[in-house]
Amino acid sequence: MNRRPVFLITCLCFGFAFFYIPILSIIVFSFNKSRLVSVWGGFSTQWYGKLFENDQIIEAAKLSLSIALVSATIATILGTMAGIALARFKRFRGRTLFSGLVTAPLIMPEIITGISSLMLFILMADWIGWPGERGFTTVTIAHITFSMTYVTTIIHARLSSTDISIEEAALDLGSRPWQVLTDITLPVIAPALLSGWLLAFTISIDDVVITNFTTGPGATTLPILIWSKVKLGVTPDINALATMIILIVGVLVVTAGIIMHRAEARRERDIQMAINANT
């Protein structure tokens, strides 16, 4: 099309305004002097000072981070296993139930996952005496269960699109199955492993509903802290906290995007050079 799609660009700008005005509003009002959340009362950085003095917020951030690190790592291991099982083992007993179990958590409303996990933990404590109290362990288990299926979806898609004949060739040439896994399959899916881990990490660190139901009195994650504060009313220090989170996430995502973009460009250039060299 030689005409510029003026109407479409207008729509896109409108959409971005819708996306970013609320976020910009949070950032602007985090520097507000007034206690009132959205009435401007002059410039001040006092809420940031209050934020760093608040041990509760720092403890919650640490807990969120450690839960996310542990659960993303275990979810990546379990999810990768499930992805390999679904993509590479065409027949095994209970495969239908297994593929159902892998897709169901993706569409299950979070509130149902939350209450069902809580009932499981309470009933298990009743029957076998474990878990004694809810907190880090129960939240981590619930997060792993929820996020491993996202990892499985990513790994499954990646393995389905790669050629199985390389693995078969290695087996024919006398490699042990374990060698094939570590020398061929895992390197092939390495980018998918990274994006699966990142997705599991984000899901865990951002989760409110499932954490709300599976956590105990001693373990407050950052989203739960924000959740309980927001339910009581909006306070300006959340604006400062939100700005910090948005900035950290924004810098990380943009950096990751640029790195991935560069890697992609380099790969395309290498392929082009290889083609040129061969002709």
Partner: peptide, 8 residues
């Protein structure tokens, strides 16, 4: 960015 913060 955090889901909860977008609601907030």
């Amino acid at each position: 960015t955090s889901f909860l913060l977008r609601v907030y």
